[in-house]
Simulated assay, not measured.
Amino acid sequence: MIVIKNGEVYSPERIGKKNIVLEGTRIEGIYDEINVPNDFINIDMIDAEDKLILPGFIDSHVHITGGGGEDGFSSRTPEIQLSTIIKAGITTIVGCLGADSVCRNMTDLLAKAYALEEEGVTTYIYTGSYEVPVKSLTDSLDKDIILIEKIIGAGEIAVADNRSSQPTYDEFVRTVAKSRVAGLISGKAGVVNVHVGNSKEGIEYIFNMIRNTDIPITQIIPTHMNRSKRLLMSGVELGKLDGIIDLTTSCDKDCMADDELTASEALKMLLDNDVNIENIQFTSDAQGSLPAFDEKGRLIKTSIGSVESLYDEVRNAISNQGIKLEEAIKVITSNVAEHLKFKKKGRLAKDYDADLVIIDKNSMEITDVIAKGKVAMRNGKVLMKGTYENK
């Protein structure tokens, strides 16, 4: 058992100074007062005085097996390591492929997800890559979602991008429809994670689907919506229709487009345009490449995404954009859990999973992380590392 005392708790709503009891992998309860007898069973006591206690962060778009490759084989990005995830306060992670579905494949992705789960964090994955038709693990997208527990949907499918497979509208909608039905059958979200590029058509396929089918708008999660103000304003329209907007936190600040926004800036703009905070989420796009192309589609630079950007941009939203902590933290906790049907994630409440992040009230730095009921980081020191990280 673990008892966390005297911390200011955000569930993510602020509920004040509380004491949290963890039993195994779940939250046993949250109490105003708690007295532990000296002769009671062995308990790990954590004093969270002058600290804030938050739900464990959820990053639902990470290239856990690496990505990239737009500038030749040497530009392939590496697999993510467990300690990197822990330092970023992330306790639940969703892996995906990207542009390369030849040198990276679904078998590798699933194996890496199993490995990270064994090492200490909760993992899920999407089936497919940029391509349509989806390159699945089994012989079909819907079988993947229905029969393989870790697969919760499809993606990231690319549209409006020079690297996409240029699917037709009908191909796109059929993919979403199959993913939805598979989700219904399996009790999963069955969402389609859509990579939206810079091309002028933007998210027109999504608007066409809303106008011409009865598929729920929340079946699609378009990501990279902060890559331009033009695209973000279409996100405002989508959000007002109750659609989900995913903002990417990783960016190369030395090579941002003129009208590109950081995730924190985009969050502020969405809220100023009356988009419901519940419809917005952040993801890091970590380990994916961040390529920059000129007006003729030629690659001019590439860098790599980072999971640390996830919380960094939440902190920027609070300090630079004036957004309240209990609102800002939702975009990496409860909102994501709701969108992806993670029923025991994203909140601090009785019987929820014992995933917590403790931050210093003054510096807002992450000090402690608990994942699946185990202390993964204590006083800034990472305790939970990958199998070969100490070798």
Rank of each mutant, 00 (worst) to 15 (best):
A317L: 10
S289Q: 02
A286N: 04
N320Y: 13
A317E: 05
N320D: 14
G305V: 07
S303K: 08
K268V: 04
N276H: 11
E265I: 04
G288Q: 10
K301H: 15
S289P: 01
N276K: 15
A266F: 04
E265N: 10
L271T: 08
S303F: 05
P291R: 07
V275P: 00
L299T: 04
N316L: 11
P291F: 05
S319T: 14
T283P: 02
D274W: 09
D274R: 11
D285P: 09
S284R: 03
L270K: 01
E278S: 15
D294F: 09
G297E: 11
K268H: 10
S306P: 05
G297Q: 13
E265G: 06
N273E: 14
K301Y: 11
L310D: 00
D294C: 09
M269C: 07
Y311M: 07
N273F: 04
I304M: 14
L271V: 13
A266I: 06
A317N: 07
L310P: 02
E313C: 06
Q287P: 01
G288A: 11
S303D: 14
A266W: 02
T262A: 03
S306D: 14
L267T: 05
T302A: 08
L299Q: 07
D312S: 13
K268M: 08
N316K: 12
S264F: 04
D274G: 07
I280K: 03
Q281I: 15
S303E: 12
D272Y: 09
E308T: 13
I277V: 15
I280P: 01
F293Q: 02
R298P: 02
I318W: 02
T302N: 10
G305E: 05
N316V: 09
I318L: 10
I280S: 00
V275H: 01
I304V: 15
I280Q: 03
D294T: 10
S309L: 07
A263P: 08
M269V: 14
T302W: 01
A292G: 05
S309Q: 10
N320Q: 12
L267R: 00
L261H: 03
D285F: 08
G297K: 11
L290A: 01
E278Y: 08
Y311S: 04
D285K: 06
S309K: 12
A292Y: 01
K268I: 06
T262V: 06
N276W: 09
K296F: 14
A286D: 05
G288W: 07
